[in-house]
Design a protein around this nucleic acid. Structure first.
Lengths: 142, 142
DNA sequence: GTAAAATAGTTACCTGAGTAACTAATTGGG
DNA sequence: CCCAATTAGTTACTCAGGTAACTATTTTAC
């Protein structure tokens, strides 16, 4: 039973997807981790940094770094909430303006990545993977 | 069509799997990337570094680093081939001796990671993922 | 037979993510 | 009310992977 093959396939897929998304974003000076944040902020509006972490299932330190880079590029800003510990993150005008172009590039890349995969298969896969991830997250908390 | 959700699930799975394998290997002072190399060398015997790269679908520089760490721990050694550019990598006695213990730990971890996943589903998933990866690798070469 | 192209590995530097240890602010218990 | 515990975020350091540029060999082509 070659379980390691399954794991290896998943790692490779993850790397391959990131690589191709990064290639897509390169003309805009963005990277995949930044795009994930921009995407969530566009969907959800203003969010605290820890909410972003939870949403994207990432620890706090990588999020700090990603946001600092986005701030440097003036795509994101924060405002202090009533709770002075919290940084509420939101998109800048500059990001809102550029967003549609980014989105179109990413959407068309996604399409290419899934070309030749019938919706039916995609949904089966997504369902299986999501349920597996769910049980895994349980395992690690024991 | 939430394709980003599928991608996000795969990234998370990849990270979660690595995390749990690293936890399993920690008592032995090993990391997942090192284990992958040790496993292949055990299966295949002596291999050149570039063959290892190809087999594990990893670029040369990470492989150099992983092997250098394994050499430092005296789990691996290289001998120069007829072609002086090539380094043939092989396990040391020390690694051969310790291997069964490592293997058992990893196998039992793998079982835990797949607990609750019927073989049938696992195979469907593996098949879908592998065929997707295959087409993806084609896309990036265009 | 030698100069150019290809190949194996390394070095330097980058993204992405993790843990541990820290600071600053807030909440709760006595 | 005030001190302890918790929470939000940062800093420092690590692993895993990637690209670009390099060295040292080996092939290939002329």
């Amino acid at each position: 039973m070659a379980t390691h093959e399954l794991f290896h396939t998943i790692h490779q897929l993850s790397r391959e997807l990131t690589k191709l998304i990064n290639q897509t974003l390169q003309p805009f000076g963005l990277y995949s981790a930044q795009w994930a944040v921009l995407f969530v902020l566009k969907e959800e509006g203003s969010m605290s940094q820890s909410d972003l972490c939870e949403y994207l299932a990432v620890e706090a330190p990588p999020m700090t770094r990603t946001i600092q880079r986005l701030i440097k590029q003036d795509y994101v800003r924060y405002t202090q909430g009533a709770d002075k510990r919290v940084k509420m993150i939101h998109l800048t005008e500059k990001a809102e303006t550029a967003y549609p172009e980014w989105e179109q590039a990413v959407l068309s890349a996604n399409e290419k990545l899934l070309a030749g995969m019938p919706d039916e298969k995609r949904i089966v896969m997504q369902t299986l993977l999501a349920s597996w991830l769910g049980t895994l997250k349980g395992v690690s908390h024991e």
